[in-house]
Design a protein around this nucleic acid. Structure first.
Lengths: 138, 138
DNA sequence: TGTAATCCCTATTAAATTGATAGGATTAAT
DNA sequence: ATTAATCCTATCAATTTAATAGGGATTACA
């Protein structure tokens, strides 16, 4: 299941992408419009900024803005920042690899093989989707 | 992340599929061979039996057996029993649908659209994979 | 220069979930 | 009867998640 953090983060990014004008978008505005607890959202946008996806401007009339064009922001990056590994088991993760405690031999593990397929298919979706796709209002 | 329950369940099913002879396979044997806490595994096999995937024989020389051929046991069914919904958000789940508390309008939700794609691709994998594929020792 | 608005940071908490354990009841083979 | 297995329920500890709280630092602007 997708965490609220990720869901809220995706909605916020979409909101920012849609409001891109000259001035940065404020947390309070996003929180209100998207029905997200403001303090919770603050933390989420902070991690998105630290990861380089968002930029921010402090002080009065401050807020958040995208560091790149929506069409340049891939879901792979966003999802990894918000949700962590895309793979369902660590032993299959490209960016967060870890050996499983059980499992003496990965090559012989039936779960491993199945999860590689799932990972590849999910990756395909995330690689082919950008924030521009999310914010297209069709 | 895949729960241990699901991982253990998949390994156990694979084990049973590979040992299919005349007599049922015992929990203790699986637990030992696959390094799974026995009592935990008991519960897992119980739910697999209640869902109709496994059958059991009680008492001495009892154990568990597959109710169908491995090639008839689809991952969609196994995953839904062990892990629950395949979709990452309830509003996109085919078998466990629920409206999201936030989200006034699903059709306009950017997360919704993305997660439908992920779901469909994951489903594709699970529908095309059976226990026979998992237990093929290549 | 002061005040309000905004992001920034850390700590805390409550609830839910997960992984595991415990103890025995029931059933069947010998 | 005895033994060996499944079956069932309850409980527990650890972790994770979602949310809240309280204030610090920075900036615009009157």
């Amino acid at each position: 299941m997708l965490s609220k953090k990720t869901k809220y983060g995706l909605k916020a990014l979409t909101y920012i992408a849609r409001s891109e004008g000259d001035s940065p978008v404020q947390v309070g505005e996003i929180a209100k419009s998207e029905q997200i607890p403001q303090k919770f959202l603050e933390g989420i946008l902070l991690t998105l900024r630290k990861s380089g996806i968002l930029g921010s401007k402090k002080g009065k009339h401050g807020g958040y803005y995208l560091r790149n064009e929506p069409s340049e922001i891939k879901m792979t990056d966003v999802m990894r920042v918000l949700e962590g590994p895309i793979a369902m088991v660590p032993c299959v993760s490209l960016n967060f690899y870890e050996k499983c405690d059980d499992c003496p031999d990965e090559d012989k593990c039936s779960v491993n093989k199945l999860m590689i397929q799932v990972r590849d298919n999910t990756l395909k979706v995330f690689r082919n989707t950008t924030l521009a796709d999310l914010s297209d209002t069709n």
